[in-house]
Design a binder for these strands. Structure first.
Lengths: 106, 106
DNA sequence: TATTTGTGAAACTAATCGGTTGCAAATATA
DNA sequence: TATATTTGCAACCGATTAGTTTCACAAATA
């Protein structure tokens, strides 16, 4: 089972869970109440997110609070970096072109 | 068939293709030569990427050149934005804490 | 014209996915 | 102690996935 953050984030429900627990830790039941799925389905998603280390657990009595390991999100950001360079270059080229046109108008 | 950019990017081969054609347009055969898969498998990935509008085609004779629609990558960046805010806040809090400790030492 | 080359698409397969159902373990409450 | 609550996990199901094989079509080339 080869899981990485990109696969984790591919599922829309999983993305919604990530957003939901980004600011505050929540129990599986509480998370499930926010969606149109069963507690078990959410539990499965949480297991996948845990395997990817995107999520951390904290046990309090019989409840388990899940929260986001925000630093893991940076891995996606890191991969995007190479494209950011390209679109910044493109922007600069456009900028250059625009100023050339401006000069020609003068 | 519900395809979005997150699903498109979930597959490692697809990510590699995206990186490969980011800087220069390539034919399916040329792309396939860079991987350990058949031309047909690459062709299937290209179809998915085309459906997601991550990739654009340009026909030249019997060859079809595929290149990256770089702006689509910004959609991922846009989704990451909300987490970037959180980790910047965290960084600021850490910064604050560090300067507090510094003051206490004085 | 006959052959080679570049490509998309259909049919098929094994593996995986997301979800449901049901159960067991642990904790809380009566 | 008996019961209710919270949870993880295994078994199963239908749908989807990535890949292969095969075929058909169009363009280049001999």
């Amino acid at each position: 089972m080869r899981r990485d953050i990109f696969q984790a984030v591919a599922d829309p429900t999983r993305r919604a869970i990530i957003v939901l627990i980004a600011l505050q830790a929540m129990t599986p039941n509480a998370i499930a109440n926010n969606f149109n799925t069963t507690r078990q389905a959410v539990s499965k998603h949480l297991r996948i997110l845990t395997e990817c280390e995107i999520v951390k657990q904290e046990q309090k009595g019989r409840e388990i609070y899940y929260s986001l390991e925000i630093d893991k999100m940076k891995e996606i950001d890191k991969w995007l970096e190479q494209f950011r360079k390209i679109w910044e270059t493109k922007f600069n080229q456009l900028d250059k072109l625009l100023s050339t046109i401006k000069k020609q108008k003068k």
